[in-house]
Design a protein around this nucleic acid. Structure first.
Lengths: 204, 204
DNA sequence: CATAAACTAAACCGTACAGTACAGTTTTGG
DNA sequence: CCAAAACTGTACTGTACGGTTTAGTTTATG
């Protein structure tokens, strides 16, 4: 039967994601994951051959959020560049500064010395974001809404400005759910800065 | 006697720093540190009461580099704001993207969930940098070299723009020693962007 | 119902680690 | 030169973990 197995696999992945995000890779034990799932260790090892493999799958799962988001938040037709950037920025920050995504980013950085999982994660989330943003910025340039320039540089600067005020949270012990009012203010300042660099005409 | 003990303590700290930076906290063992130091475990535990304490001291040591740097690289009297930013940026990037500092930043992020060492590290390095930079930016504002504005916002945006093109290296498996030519180019683009936002008069 | 597959619980194995105990040796300071 | 302190090597304790095995139970399917 497939439905049972599929559900079980999903459950294991979700529970493992929780445990890994709480305690990191080393401090998490298969026994803990096992008891939270409810079954026995043998079942766990029936679905995943090792702790490492389970971890890798959890991390890859973590990039799917970014994919779904990008293909949904980058529809900025019928809006000015300012509106488009604002919308995108607010949504992106709400996503990538949620406690669970923060935890995954930490894991990616923490484990990046030994397994290349960090680089994989980066390529599939941030880098993918840069590339798609760069494409859309090119469209805005073609429409005369932005100055001409290296779209990849523009994209990384835009993302960096979005991150500027919040990045410190990567170092916090307990990361709170982001407050939308705050995110709006932060995004506004990032948009102003970005348009001051790359906006078509200086209006200030 | 103090000299012998002091030297021994330094040696232990240096060796421990190496080991922790190579393997992270969990994967590093006191036995490994011990054999590299050359003595016995008893001696190790004479100087530091536990692995955790040793780790904390290593991390605090890691912030001293930033202190020394900041008090030296922020002397930008007798130079234009552009020169000053360029100088500061080049030096900062050469420092914080050196493999050893990258390793410490990773450790700070990785262990930030359980011990507050990440937050401590941030407060003593990056936050301190923000504050000092903000003070100097205020002087530049007073001298008419920068537009008026929130100096803390200006500082974090400046640092974010400096980081924009290099941050991905946090996720790399092997981080190379930064290439000064590249750092110069990156810093130049960051300076241009920053001055486009906060420069006194738009000249482009 | 019968059969094969999946699941459970528990014990088990080998390894690795933090930290301690200790007996003997070297170094240090007066 | 001598006592105190620091150091060394090694063995040990207790614990925790990843992963395996086994023996028995449930569940799905033809």
């Amino acid at each position: 039967m497939k439905t049972k197995s599929e559900a079980r696999r999903r459950l294991i992945l979700d529970v493992a994601a929780d445990v890994f995000r709480e305690s990191g890779f080393e401090r998490s034990s298969m026994a803990e994951i096992c008891t939270r799932v409810g079954g026995s260790k043998a079942t766990l090892y029936n679905y995943f051959p090792s702790k490492e493999e389970l971890f890798l799958e959890v991390m890859l799962e973590g990039t799917k959020d970014h994919f779904c988001f990008l293909h949904q938040a980058l529809d900025w037709r019928n809006s000015s560049i300012r509106e488009a950037l604002t919308n995108f920025g607010e949504q992106l920050l709400m996503l990538i500064y949620s406690p669970s995504i923060i935890a995954v980013r930490r894991l990616a950085i923490a484990e990046s010395m030994r397994s290349g999982v960090g680089q994989d994660f980066y390529e599939r989330s941030r880098r993918k974001g840069e590339q798609l943003v760069a494409q859309h910025l090119q469209q805005a340039i073609d429409a005369g809404q932005l100055r001409n320039g290296d779209t990849h540089l523009m994209a990384v600067q835009w993302l960096a400005l979005l991150d500027a005020e919040l990045m410190e949270r990567l170092f916090w012990r307990d990361v709170p759910e982001p407050d939308f009012e705050h995110i709006q203010a932060v995004t506004g300042r990032a948009v102003n800065a970005f348009l001051a660099i790359w906006g078509p005409i200086d209006t200030h």
